[in-house]
């Protein structure tokens, strides 16, 4: 029973990270139809931003976190402006491949400017301390992951329902032209979507880095693939779907860690993808996705 509770929280906290990443992907996709393959590199940006600050002698964890979040958000805005705006009205394949190229550029910038080898970022390791709650062992990080993610999602819901630009983002998911007819600036809506997606990714990135204590140029690849999987699981473009898909993925992963013997540990990622494939066979539109008919707006 104890074990079950601990693993459940574990599933929640890992799932929360995927949810945050998946949400960012889903927001950008729903607003402008872009499949942002470079989304995972936001994790790298956060990591290397912290690494650079720490190397310059700034080691206060809170400051590092704030700096990383600001940097990622800024990078997201810059990427939108220089790389994604030119392909905004292009077919979705073009956008996907552009993002794919952007991802490669960022990875190799980390590699070129810092090192191909992993670097330690130990400043956040204090979060891995365990605390005892009613006889269970949890880390501070796990509570933070669940708590901060909940707050972030609540904030996002408020933003989408309460602010003009949030309304415009929701409306743009269906019909961008009419949003422009309302006098809403397309550039502002899309830039906001990118900023939010970067902000959410930076939160997830901080958790990732706190867990690993190290960064490397290609650290964003697997998380973003899983975030994609989460999106597809939930129904691509659906925001609630992204959250549900992310959580589900977290639970599946924890379950696999528990169930698969160490000898088969190499199959963990493979099994995650296999399970996803199996789900998609039965529900090609994802769990919360609506049934897409041929010719609908899809990726």
């Amino acid at each position: 029973m104890d074990y079950l509770i601990e693993q459940a929280l574990n599933g929640f906290s890992i799932g929360a990270q995927y949810s945050l990443l998946a949400l960012g992907l889903a927001i950008v996709f729903s607003v402008m139809g872009l499949v942002n393959f470079a989304h995972g590199e936001f994790i790298g940006v956060a990591g290397y931003a912290m690494f650079a600050m720490a190397a310059m002698g700034m080691t206060d964890p809170l400051l590092l976190v704030v700096f990383a979040m600001a940097t990622v958000t800024l990078v997201a805005l810059v990427l939108e402006r220089i790389a994604f705006r030119p392909v905004r009205n292009a077919p979705s394949t073009t956008g996907l491949l552009t993002a794919f190229g952007v991802g490669i550029i960022l990875q190799n910038l980390f590699l070129l400017m810092v090192s191909p080898r992993p670097k330690a970022v130990p400043e956040l390791s204090a979060l891995n301390q365990t605390v005892d709650v009613w006889g269970h062992n949890f880390t501070i990080l796990q509570f933070l992951e669940v708590g901060v993610t909940t707050v972030a999602i609540a904030g996002l819901v408020w933003f989408l329902k309460g602010t003009r630009i949030g309304l415009a983002m929701r409306a743009a998911a269906l019909d961008f032209t009419t949003v422009r007819l309302m006098g809403m600036r397309a550039n502002r809506v899309i830039a906001t979507a990118f900023a939010i997606s970067g902000l959410l990714a930076s939160i997830a990135a901080i958790f990732f880095i706190a867990r690993r204590g190290a960064i490397d140029p290609f650290m964003g690849l697997l998380p973003v693939l899983k975030a994609f999987v989460a999106c597809v699981l939930g129904g691509f473009g659906s925001l609630p779907g992204a959250v549900v898909g992310g959580l589900l993925l977290g639970f599946v992963e924890v379950m696999l860690i528990v169930l698969l013997p160490d000898k088969l540990a190499g199959l963990r990622d493979a099994s995650v993808f296999l399970i996803v494939g199996a789900i998609l066979v039965f529900r090609p539109q994802g769990i919360l996705g609506r049934r897409v008919e041929l010719g609908d707006k899809t990726a």
């Binding site: 499949v35 979705s92 996907l96 693939l225 994609f228 999987v229 996803v276 990726a299």
Partner: peptide
Amino acid sequence: AGIAATILTIS
């Protein structure tokens, strides 16, 4: 279709 198929190829 579309992105879901791409994700499956990654899988």
